[in-house]
Simulated assay, not measured.
Amino acid sequence: MKDPNYANTAAIIGIGTSIPPYRLEQNEVFHRIEASCKKDSDVMRWARRIFRQCGVDTRYTCEPDFQEEAGSCRYLPDHDGGIVPTTSERMEVYRKASVPLAAQAAREAIAEAKLDPSSITHLMTVSCTGQFLPGLDTLLVKELGLSLRINRIPLIFQGCSAGLKAIQLAKGIVESCPSHNVLVVCVELCTIHFQPPASREALFGASFFGDGASACVISSAASGHEHIFELGKGHSVLIPESEDEMLWKVGDHGFDLYLSPAIPKLLKTFLREEVELLSEGRALPPLWAVHPGGRGIVDAVQEMFQLDDSQVAYSRNILKNFGNLSSATILFVLKEMRNNLIERGTEQADGVSLAFGPGLTAELLSFTYVHNVKKPYSARRDATYV
């Protein structure tokens, strides 16, 4: 007899990702930064250090202007008084590039979930790098052939943790009614906000952010799919007296980002208690999907919980090959993890996902990777954290 709780368990049954066509090698980005602030030796010394240590080799951008020679890029001109794109110009780039990129990731997720687009009941769109109306959610309904009566839920301007927040909200929607199918779509065009660095701190964003989109379908775990992530307990926490550590403001020439170098140290002051609350006294799981908000964040989590290199390899690989894609990143990490588990022939394994954003905010979610969902639900849950 099927466990009655099984039908109310939400799971990620399809994941899709997409990247724009223009590739940025880290050394090329550095040369453009160097050309734009060559008169400021202090900033350049800091830039060399950050670009060497941030853990990124390659990123992608929707903006072909970044393919220009150092000094010729409009976003990073090599002379004082160079006219950089205004915020309205950058928002027009976002409007044109975000929809096709998001639609590509969404189509992959829906196809993998083996669902007709008309069966999607909720669409949750996530982005913090651009805004326009009618919004991304409205245009995706037409692009994807979704129902005109679909429940649309946009999450705007909530930073890197918003992707995992959307998954948690979608989990609640599915648990409230097992017939619901929720499509989560995250798209971030971080590079359109690059501008000549005016300070050492402003270099952090330029050193590791990139562009990309990701999507997932969350439905009942009883849907009969294989290679899924069943979603368990999760919560969010706001860290007191930390609101100035991560700032993201609308400026005249793009969004102005400030990231404090103290963030990894701050994580160590509260994260252990939150993970213990999530795990309810059980041993730590083997799988860790950590949002790679920067190399220092991954280092801090690995050190804090004494994880081996293989447990944070998914996060480091995404950071190395794509950079930090803000809210879209966590699904890139989960997709790489799932593909590796399939390759290894893993039947079941438990995990925890962590993401961090302005506030400072931490999102935590436990999950179980399952190869074959035909196994009795109660038997699989008895085997957790092994």
Rank of each mutant, 00 (worst) to 15 (best):
A379I: 07
R338P: 02
T361S: 14
L360H: 09
F356V: 05
K375C: 10
N339D: 15
N372E: 14
L365A: 09
G357K: 05
T346M: 09
N339C: 10
E336M: 12
Q348W: 00
K375A: 14
N324L: 14
A349N: 08
N324T: 10
L325S: 04
L365C: 12
Q348T: 04
T361G: 09
I330C: 13
Y377L: 07
L331K: 06
S327T: 11
L331W: 10
P358T: 04
D350A: 11
P358W: 05
R344V: 03
G359E: 02
K375Q: 14
A362C: 15
A355L: 05
L354I: 15
E363K: 01
E343R: 14
T368V: 13
L341F: 03
V333H: 03
V373M: 11
N340P: 00
L325I: 13
R380V: 02
L331Q: 12
L364N: 00
Y369F: 15
V370I: 15
A379V: 10
K335Q: 15
M337N: 04
L365D: 04
S326T: 10
E343Y: 12
Y377T: 00
T329N: 07
S366V: 06
E336L: 14
L325A: 07
L364P: 00
H371K: 15
T346E: 12
I330H: 09
F356W: 06
A362T: 14
G351M: 06
L364M: 09
A328P: 03
D350W: 01
F356L: 11
N340I: 02
T361P: 01
R344Q: 14
T361F: 06
H371A: 15
K335W: 01
K374H: 13
F367H: 07
A349H: 02
G345R: 12
V370A: 10
F367S: 05
L354H: 01
R338Y: 01
Y369V: 12
